[in-house]
Design a protein around this nucleic acid. Structure first.
Lengths: 243, 243
DNA sequence: CGAGGGGTTGACGCCGATCAAAGCTGGTGG
DNA sequence: CCACCAGCTTTGATCGGCGTCAACCCCTCG
């Protein structure tokens, strides 16, 4: 039961430019893969490309925006903040994922608070634009469905891996997830802040710190040249068994 | 970390008949609401209607079936069973919900084990039939999306409500969920087995038993004439605050 | 009636929450 | 360029919640 310190999240975003989906070099990873290049020629509302600073809030449950966000680079955390201030991270979303999809179902607000972890590069797509494209290109429905299914699988993984077992086991699972799904090509990844990791496995910051310290001591995780971490997955799994 | 006793689940199902979706009296609740009555006139493969006995397994991750299941009456639990035998309930699905949707995304297997809780009345829909109907009636995509979004919301609720706080708090949340989402019109509901409730909030059976006993003692929950339970939601919430 | 599978209750010990205080670190301003 | 400060991480000490083991009870079904 961690209470988030009342940091003021900035929402500094640098506008990179109008998105040209037809020429986007990572489009095959993205929501609009497979749409023909000319699909974007006459959009009602434009798609813009931004770079957000770390710890920027993309949206909150009571935001009255009408955008979904397609992540190109970086990580976004979806957070549930209860009235009593309880702060729980529900999902981490990386490149190729789309957040805010609940708006497509006619929900009149977002279901979480979305906050960038580190710098994030993304495209901001108006809901009306998605609906227009869905009408003109029915196959888009399939991709939206895939996105939802992917998020559902992530949520289930969260429940199973991070919701069961001792603090050690959950911490081990968390790092395995980070290294498997959110690492660069070399398998190196950033640890999140203690507070964030505590909010993922629902323990106290102190417990997180103690376990991480032990993992470093046992050389199961270690910093590389660029201040990123690598881990020994097998040892980590063993560590997770222990007790 | 509970280990499921190795009960043999039967899969006894009584075939009620070929489904006539066009005349189904609860269709507006179901996946096929809004499709025209004649949509079902020339299906490649038929939709059948079954009544399953309690504790029947609908499917498992390695089942090679190709059906999705639309629940008409009763409750189905989606379970994750790890290699080491860890048994975790990931979601409860009630009337109007559809399970097995992951197959529509081309996943070659189910992502959970689905087991009936009490008697369940459902329609078994071949995947090919859904795909056929999607092609002929694009609006079906929207309803599938709604189903996925609903499941995602449930999963998130699970993470937040049942994954945080003391055992008391989680137990209180669980009963609130049961009474809010899985009760009959009088707000009466069935408690699940101790083992199942333990697998939902990830505690031991003993802890579940002790907390339930305390709730009965304090008359926060009580049995009605039909062996169903009712609860005092306000008191339950207070109980959940306590400690 | 006896057996067996839950559920219940008690005793005990450990994990991890909590409180408190002391290192670190990066950022800011003199 | 250095000193300082705020916020994070770390570490220690304490103690209560709850997991575990064991015994017992109750209810159902053969």
């Amino acid at each position: 039961m961690t209470i988030k310190s009342d940091t003021i999240y900035c929402a500094d975003a640098e506008w990179v430019g109008r998105a040209h989906c037809g020429e986007c070099h990572i489009r095959r990873l993205m929501l609009f893969s497979e749409l023909p290049d000319n699909a974007f020629d006459h959009l009602l509302q434009p798609i813009d490309h931004f770079i957000y600073a770390p710890d920027s809030t993309l949206y909150e449950p009571n935001s009255h925006k009408k955008f979904i966000f397609s992540i190109r680079r970086g990580i976004v955390k979806l957070v549930n903040i209860a009235e009593n201030g309880t702060y729980r991270i529900v999902r981490l979303m990386g490149p190729g994922s789309v957040v805010g999809l609940e708006l497509l179902d006619g929900s009149d607000g977002y279901h979480h608070t979305a906050i960038t972890v580190g710098q994030v590069d993304l495209c901001k797509i108006p809901v009306t634009t998605v609906k227009q494209l869905e009408k003109e290109h029915t196959e888009l429905y399939v991709h939206v469905g895939e996105q939802l299914q992917k998020q559902l699988d992530l949520a289930d993984q969260w429940i199973v891996a991070l919701g069961t077992g001792s603090a050690q086991q959950r911490m081990a699972q968390l790092i395995l997830i980070l290294s498997a799904s959110y690492a660069d090509k070399d398998g190196a990844f950033n640890l999140l802040s203690g507070e964030d990791m505590a909010a993922m496995i629902s323990t106290s910051v102190e417990t997180v710190s103690r376990i991480i310290a032990e993992l470093k001591r046992q050389k199961i995780i270690y910093k590389n040249e660029n201040k990123l971490y690598n881990c020994d997955a097998d040892e980590l799994r063993k560590f997770g068994q222990h007790d």
